[in-house]
Design a protein around this nucleic acid. Structure first.
Length: 483
RNA sequence: GGUGCUGUGGCCGAGAGGCUGAAGGCGGCGGUUUGCUAAACCGUUAUACGGUUGAAAAGCCGUAUCGAGGGUUCGAAUCCCUCCGGCACCGCCA
């Protein structure tokens, strides 16, 4: 969330930043914001003057009554009665204007840092030469990871589809264990080598948490939501509706297709009605542990001395992938549910730049220890996420796909999330200095790391070698799929 | 989920319609005393927003804030409603 005062002071920088991001009418957006802001401030002057007079008169009424001056009290009460309407109307207007301003600000992305390259899409991302590692292995006729996994009988998409639909998977035996081993391996690196505190956070969160990190209100279509029905309201309504529907179905002589369409339409109606706040409480499944870990400090004032805070967690992540129809439909690259080890840092504004490099080091360290070739790109203005000022993507080489694929994304969000979450810090003298900075990065996406291991360590006989660093976590096993 | 109790500043805790931005204590900061430290004593110590003075640091004035949001009242920490936490017991449960 942007600071309206900063926009007021330097609208040019704001407009420039948004234009770099590819926003077409940044000037119009800024003008609109400033107009609302001016209206709000003008209103506040009028409202606060009226409130000051009311408070003053109310005190005088108390004094008059204490002196038994009924006539004087009556005069004052008449005056205040007139102010009352004015104040109530002003307060309503203030709420309205503040909401409008907040709603406008809530969907405006962060401003890119100065050293982020301009560009519209991933084609304009710039490799960071000093961070490149390894060379792609030469493998004859490399298979894709799902071919390897399915041939091993340890990766089952069909049964997952039966139980949960597309974009889910069952892992079995050594591959199931590999996921667990990778998580432990990554967490050990981050906690022991980089000083992150391991967390096991909630994976169901409230609206406020997702607002804080920036997924809401703009990206609700990417999320899974759950509903906790209010039993007093939900079940009587549900049962009445169900009885009605069964009655209708029995009478109907329509074809199965028509019946199905009607049933789906009805279902949609139900979801909208009975999953509404009136009937239910709602929680969201986290799309990334960034949400749980960052909001750990929401609405708090931290002490400068305890910063930076560093958190890491291994959690499942849930994404609706609504806009990804047809993309990466085979295999484990893009799933509705995947597991990830996340890194989050909370820092002072002075620390965040260095911390960003350090976090990227930590993520890269995992790939280095696994000896997986990868490169790092700095995302251009058009490819960055909503809350980021600057982002490094780490891309691992996948021989089966013959391509570099994102396996980690490390972002410095500056004070953008801190403002939305209301997280500030105070210095040693106890003075509140302002919003903290927040950073998050994958360290790493576990599913995609498994994909990378399968494709890079595949052997001609269909087996897969286990990277040396990982073998202790696999009970000393050296190869998957060989007796 | 049910019933009861409960939510006050950095922390503990009083306050039960006006004199309360909020007693008292702890902690923090500044000072006096002191060879140093401690103790004692004195002073000071919230945040956000708006206005205003100032180059700035900061000052001054106002408004709001006692879990959150509404309401009653001339006036609400205090009364009413809704919601959200916490605690206790009951119910359910890995």
């Amino acid at each position: 969330m942007h600071d309206i005062k900063a926009i007021r002071d330097d609208a040019g920088a704001f407009v420039h930043g948004l234009t770099r991001r590819g926003m077409a009418d940044a000037q119009g957006v800024a003008d609109n914001l400033l107009k609302k802001d001016k209206a709000l401030r003008d209103l506040l002057v009028r409202l606060q003057t009226a409130q000051a007079r009311r408070n003053e008169a109310s005190k005088l009424i108390g004094q008059a009554k204490a002196k038994k001056d009924e006539a004087g009290a009556q005069t004052l009460m008449a005056e205040v009665a007139g102010l009352k309407d004015q104040i109530q109307q002003g307060e309503a207007e203030q709420r309205e204007l503040e909401k409008e301003l907040r709603d406008l600000l809530a969907v405006i992305p962060n401003i890119p840092a100065d050293d982020v390259p301009d560009g519209a899409d991933e084609g304009a991302n710039v490799p960071v030469a000093s961070r490149a590692f390894g060379t792609p292995p030469g493998i004859n006729n490399p298979k894709q990871h799902f071919e390897i996994g399915e041939a091993l009988g340890q990766m089952d998409f069909e049964r997952a589809a039966k139980v949960s639909g597309a974009r889910f998977v069952y892992l079995k035996n050594d591959l199931a264990r590999l996921e667990r081993a990778l998580a432990a391996f990554m967490l050990d690196i981050h906690t022991q080598q980089f000083g992150y505190t391991e967390m096991s956070p909630p994976v169901l969160v409230k609206d406020e948490a997702l607002f804080g990190t920036g997924q809401l209100p703009k990206f609700k279509d990417d999320l899974f939501a759950t509903a906790i029905p209010d039993p007093a309201k939900f079940w009587p309504a549900y049962e009445a509706a169900r009885d009605e529907q069964f009655e209708g179905l029995r009478k109907r002589v329509a074809s199965p297709q028509v019946r199905r369409d009607e049933s789906l339409a009805r279902q949609r109606e139900w979801v909208e009605k009975y999953y509404s706040p009136e009937f239910s409480r709602r929680l969201w499944l986290i799309p990334t542990a960034e949400v749980s870990l960052t909001n750990y400090v929401s609405d708090e004032i931290l002490n400068e001395a305890e910063l930076p805070l560093r958190f890491t967690a291994f959690t499942p992540c849930f994404r609706a992938e609504a806009g990804a129809a047809g993309k990466d439909t085979r295999g484990m690259i893009r799933m509705h549910q995947f597991s990830k080890v996340e890194l989050v840092s909370i820092t002072t504004p002075e620390q965040s730049g260095k911390e960003h490099e350090r976090m990227t080091d930590a993520a890269q360290e995992v790939l280095k220890k696994l000896d997986l070739a990868h490169r790092v790109v700095i995302l251009c203005t058009g490819d960055m996420g909503f809350g980021a000022k600057k982002t490094y993507d780490i891309e691992v080489w996948l021989p089966g796909q013959n391509a570099w694929r994102e396996i980690s994304s490390c972002s410095n969000c500056g004070d953008f999330q801190a403002r939305r979450m209301n997280t500030r810090y105070r210095n040693a003298e106890g003075k509140v200095k302002g919003p903290v900075h927040t950073l998050n990065g994958s360290g790493l996406a576990v599913g995609r790391t498994m994909v990378a291991i399968l494709e890079n360590y595949q052997q001609a006989d269909g087996s897969v070698a286990i990277p040396a660093a990982l073998q202790p976590y696999m009970g000393g096993k050296k190869v998957i799929g060989k007796l």
